[in-house]
Computed example of a mutant assay.
Amino acid sequence: MSKVVNTESVIDLIKDLVNIPSPSGNAYRAIEYTEAFFAQRGIPTKKTLKGMLIATLKGKDDSKHRLLTAHVDTLGAMIKDIKSSGRLTLTNIGGFPWNFVEGEYCQIETSEGKTFTGTILLHQTAVHVYRESGKLDRSPENIEVRLDEKVTSKEEVEALGIQVGDFVSFDPRFEKTKSGFVKSRHLDDKASVAMLLHMADLLKEQNITLPYTTHFLISNNEEIGYGGNSSIPEEVVEYLAVDMGAIGDGQATDEYCVSICAKDSSGPYHLGLRKHLVQLAKDNGLTYKVDIYPYYSSDASMAIHAGYDVIHGLIGAGIDASHAYERTHEESLQNTGDLIFHYLQSKLINE
């Protein structure tokens, strides 16, 4: 089967998105980017009170709707305390162990909108001073930010305008390799957002009218558990989350397939929709894996928990080293994007 998605365009969008700081609770600039993207293509959007963005493509049947979601918020941190030394302690936003960000460059955004850079380090990093540094617990008590400013006291830091509650984002370190890999923080879930944006382009370029009115919901609080679980139009019948496929020991997913989730920690996804997605993958010659994610939930499962009566599913590109320095391959983006394209033009499973 011929390929549909232009992976270079998707990767360009990924690069743009990951370089916009957007930890949960402070994702407004990334939302604004997606809002402008849809507006430039004449696709109407609305923003919810929670700050999510819903773009709507009118379909041939406006009585039954589909909704696809991807989240633009990422892991991050917030300043918990300013030490007397001028170093900063952190509290995490989203779920990750501190060793996953040790040594990473970061950016601090003050409430006045100023930005400062720094590095996340173990307090006892100097091996010439701390003999047991390698054995110490990577905990909030031991992890701190070394500011790239000439400060040696709490007062000097506060004079810069930095205070408790300021957001901290992690340097994505985006890179595309000659062998087709995409390496970056925050591929979860900006790779999926990029695919939905590219999908909007494809549909416009090819003048495709979808069989059903379809919404692209860009959520902004998924990493903290309440992303796309509200503001779902009552006409929505099928709700498909596009998020990362989990890779590791015992997992079927790899960096080259589209991962179709059968179950995560929230429970099974809709069996009929899963079978439909598998058949679409087979019919279109896509590389896919059906998998179970043991420590995971999605915006789709959160919508179910919130009480929405929808058919829910979950697919995504295979992402290695989730919540750390992540990686996927252009083949996975191709297979995932192509499955989205074919799903959007298929019949609802109950028809």
Rank of each mutant, 00 (worst) to 15 (best):
T74I: 04
R146V: 12
A191V: 10
P233G: 07
I292N: 09
H198K: 14
Y308V: 00
N350A: 07
E222R: 04
I14E: 11
L17I: 10
L210A: 00
E330W: 03
E158H: 05
R131S: 14
D148A: 11
L196Q: 05
N229E: 08
F116H: 02
W98R: 00
V237E: 15
A262L: 15
D264F: 13
V101N: 00
E156K: 13
E234F: 12
V182I: 15
K50A: 13
K135E: 14
P268S: 12
P23N: 09
H215A: 01
L344S: 01
D61V: 01
G250N: 05
E205L: 03
A281M: 05
T328W: 10
T48Y: 11
H198T: 04
I260H: 09
M195A: 02
V310T: 13
R29V: 03
D309P: 01
L286Q: 10
R185F: 08
A77F: 02
A70F: 08
Y343T: 03
A303W: 09
L280N: 04
A281Q: 06
L17P: 01
S169C: 09
L339W: 12
D291C: 05
P44L: 09
H323C: 05
Y28L: 02
G225F: 06
A200S: 15
R87D: 11
I54Q: 01
E141S: 12
T177W: 10
G250T: 08
Y28M: 07
Y288R: 03
N207R: 11
R131F: 13
V242G: 00
P21E: 09
V258A: 04
A303D: 11
H312V: 02
T177F: 07
K204H: 10
T117H: 14
G267N: 07
T117S: 15
L314W: 12
K154Q: 13
E331N: 14
L202V: 15
A321C: 06
G103K: 03
L68I: 14
K46F: 14
I340M: 12
G42V: 05
T328Q: 08
I224W: 12
C106W: 09
I108E: 06
T69A: 11
A36C: 09
F174W: 07
V258F: 10
H128G: 06
H312K: 07
C106E: 08
V168I: 15
L147K: 04
D12A: 14
E156Q: 15
S219K: 04
E235Q: 15
L75M: 09
H198A: 04
N19E: 15
A262G: 11
R173F: 08
V290A: 02
D254A: 00
D12V: 03
K154W: 05
L90K: 01
I43K: 01
A194P: 00
A246R: 03
R87E: 10
G245M: 06
R185C: 03
D309H: 12
V5S: 06
E35D: 14
Y226T: 09
E156L: 04
I315V: 13
Q206D: 10
R173C: 06
